[in-house]
Amino acid sequence: MSIFESRGATRRFGGLVAVDSVSFAVEQGEIFGLIGPNGAGKTTMFNLITALTPPTSGQLLFQGQNIVGKQPHQIAAMGIARTFQNIRLFGNLSALENVKVAQHTHTHANVFAGILGTPGAREEARRVEAKARELLRLVGLGESADEKAKNFSYGDQRRLEIARALALEPKLLLLDEPGAGMNPNEKGILSDLIRQIRDQFNLTIILIEHHVPLVMGLCDRIAVLNFGQLIALGKPAEVQSDPAVIDAYLGD
């Protein structure tokens, strides 16, 4: 069984079909690339998976279960985490707090336990803190844990988003242009980081990325969207030589 499968997922906005009956399956442990020209429907696809936008029709299966109709926080609790193309950190919270927030579903201290500081709540708070610091170190932000997220550089914010997503302990991680705005050197480090977290946390990753070398080097398989439709799916080398893909990228 594939860990994730899209069966004919479709999303219309008025007359525009942003995602047009797209079907593909992602296997456990894969790094799966989602590429395509601007406006091809990649981010909309992520929004469908994370329930930020409901699909007009079609099915989305996570571990064999249809997740259409669930709320975003339920999807997160099931084990799907994401980052955002136009970074959506909690700007006025510190990096540490950003990562702590994402542990919400794995912690249970209720409002009164938290306020009274019961032993259980304090123990939990210690665990949360330790884990948040560990994740920040992992993405290379261990030093600036107490800095406000909005004060971070662009690249650091992207890495903080990854740390925050990992705090959800996801099984499936969706990365929306994680390398945007990074220089080639940073992109190389990012590639290594993505591979490392895949192995360390036993993740499956779907990745939207514009930077072709990054995608080609990193992904096991790639799906190409154009005007909302899936036009190619396969190993990087196959996709790269697919005439439909070349046409989509060079056609306009």
Partner: peptide
């Protein structure tokens, strides 16, 4: 506390907090 942090996250960005 945990709950208060969730509150602040909602104030900062409700969609991201839900995600």
């Amino acid at each position: 506390s945990r709950v208060g942090r969730a509150f602040t996250a909602l104030r900062e960005d409700e969609l991201a907090a839900a995600a």
